[in-house]
């Protein structure tokens, strides 16, 4: 499946991952499923509420999650995924990512080092609860909620 971002939205997630380094960042991805792929309309940084080592784990507070669902309903978009970073590790889902993953969502992973974003990948669970990589497509003209 294609997941389609504008360059601007991609930059928001990259900036978040760089600013949060060496800790993991996380956030919400809103969009719509259309012919040709999952079109992303907005991304929103979230707080990594993990108690413990935020360099290796992230967690989103349930209240923050439900506010994201309410935001989606109010703005006629769908919460279609979650992004997070892997500081100094590849953009490959870990066993922990797999264990925690829920169906339908796209899981975008940014591999980040101190100097730069190394790689970005996106994954979705298949019917066997295994991650299947999505194809990330960058388009410059995407209608966003803010314009």
């Amino acid at each position: 499946m294609n997941i389609i971002f504008s360059q601007n939205l991609m930059e928001v997630m990259k900036k978040h991952a760089m600013e949060t380094y060496p800790f993991e960042c996380c956030g919400f991805i809103f969009g719509k499923d259309q012919v040709g792929g999952r079109k992303i309309i907005e991304v929103q940084p979230a707080t990594n509420s993990k108690q413990g080592d935020k360099r290796r784990r992230f967690e989103i507070d349930p209240l923050e999650y439900l506010k994201a669902e309410r935001y989606a309903l109010a703005n006629d978009v769908t919460l279609v995924g979650i992004y997070h970073s892997h500081p100094d590790h590849p953009a490959i889902p870990s066993e922990h990512d797999l264990k925690q993953a829920v169906p339908f969502f796209s899981y975008l992973i940014l591999s980040v080092s101190k100097e730069r974003i190394e790689n970005i990948t996106s994954w979705q669970l298949d019917h066997k609860h295994q991650f299947k990589e999505e194809f990330i497509k960058i388009e410059n003209q995407i209608e966003t909620l803010n314009n």
Binding site: R55, Y65, E69, P87, S94
Partner: peptide, 12 residues
């Protein structure tokens, strides 16, 4: 009423 899935993950 909201049903909330656990959202978590990370390197290890």
């Amino acid at each position: 009423i909201s049903i909330v899935p656990a959202i978590a993950g990370g390197i290890a």
